[in-house]
Simulated scan of single mutants.
Amino acid sequence: MDNLTHSLVGWALAETGLKRRTRKGLAATVLAANLPDIDVFFGWVPWPPLAMHRGFTHGLIGGVLVLPPVLAILLWLLDRWQARRGRLADDSPPMRFGWLLALCWIGALTHPLLDLQNVYAIQLLSPASARWFHTDGLFIISPWLLAMLGLGIWRARRHGRRQPAILALAGTALFIGGNIGISALAWAAPTRDAPYAAPDRIFAGPEPLLFWRRDVVWRQNGFIVQGRYDPLRRLEGLVDVGAPMADRMQEPLVRRAAQATAPARKFLAWSQMPVARVEQGHCRAVVTFGDARFTGPAMSRNFNAVVTLPVDGAGCGGG
């Protein structure tokens, strides 16, 4: 999810009364709710679980167990520094490190729970497993969640009561739960009705505003198929199905390109439904790797990796 949503969830948690448990309570929940995204600064490291965005820092070990104590210690040191210089508000609650640590853990837990909801997925068990998990319950930026959380926080602060924040969080949980149920129906739709598919991998990406609609993409026997699901039009079937498209990932030239460069290897380690386009030229071939999750009409943001390979041919030299 976007960092504004992560921040609002942490803020709403604080407004339920948790921020009064210790000094730096609000900072703990908001910063911890964003903490796993620190991995964007470590793409250069040689350890793949950390270099991979939504890998180690988004898992139960790195993001939920390891990072929160680090944040709690930093906030505690900041508080001591401010106390020595007399920069603490007179009406601030006492510093309770146990509560500070608990709030960091609570805030950090919300991050993988939210990121789990969209088709980008997370490596929840990293580094023990590189498996990607997803529920497809939310678009990467949900205006519905932003409005719900923002209203709850505003009313909680305006009236000095925690109930609006609690209701906003409860509404968020119900909204996500309902959308997971819709995605489960969308996953089943290609198998229950035409084209009666048997996917080995399937995603159902929600739309941002019309949240009940899904862009469905699945892989079967080396082919990618895209469709659309709308439970208001057809509950157990797709409303539109595209023609199968070969992913070309088993072609010798594509397999060679997949190992040819570090960016290609890194992209394919992240990609969960890779596809390849091959442009054959004189003495060279250009292989473009994409991800079928993001090549549909509504999922148009294009992530790719391009590899140029020399090929044998008349007049190409060598051989």
Rank of each mutant, 00 (worst) to 15 (best):
A197M: 00
F289P: 02
R87P: 08
C316M: 09
T191L: 12
C104S: 09
A262C: 05
L101K: 08
I73F: 14
V40M: 11
K266R: 15
A314G: 15
M95F: 11
L75C: 00
A188N: 11
V40G: 06
G63T: 08
A83S: 11
V254L: 04
D312N: 14
P48C: 00
L138P: 08
D2S: 08
I224H: 05
A264K: 06
F97Y: 11
N34I: 07
F139C: 01
P46L: 07
E251C: 06
V311F: 10
R80T: 09
F41M: 12
L174T: 05
S7F: 03
D39L: 05
A258K: 03
L4T: 10
F41V: 12
N221T: 13
K266S: 15
H111V: 09
K266H: 13
A204S: 02
I166E: 13
R293C: 04
L232N: 11
A262Q: 13
G55P: 04
A188G: 10
G152N: 03
E251I: 01
T261W: 05
P297Q: 15
I153G: 06
W218P: 04
A186V: 04
L113N: 06
R213F: 03
K266M: 14
W270H: 08
S183K: 00
A269P: 11
L185A: 12
L268T: 03
H58C: 02
A170T: 13
I176E: 01
F56P: 04
L13S: 07
F203G: 00
S142M: 09
A108C: 09
L116T: 01
L238Y: 00
R293M: 00
L50Q: 08
A285E: 12
P127G: 05
L8P: 07
P310R: 08
F42L: 14
R277Q: 14
G290P: 02
N118Q: 08
R214D: 01
L145K: 12
V241W: 03
E279P: 09
M1Q: 05
L174I: 07
L74T: 12
Q250M: 13
G318C: 09
I182N: 01
T29R: 06
P143D: 01
M249I: 12
T288W: 01
R301F: 15
P231W: 05
L8C: 07
E207S: 14
G63K: 05
D215F: 04
A257W: 05
L235S: 04
G237P: 09
L26M: 14
R228P: 06
V40K: 10
E236W: 15
V217D: 01
A27D: 13
G242W: 07
E279G: 11
G317M: 02
V217I: 11
W44S: 15
L138W: 02
S142V: 11
D79Q: 09
N118D: 08
G290N: 02
P195I: 03
W132G: 01
S7L: 07
L8N: 07
P164A: 03
G150Q: 02
F211Y: 12
Q117D: 10
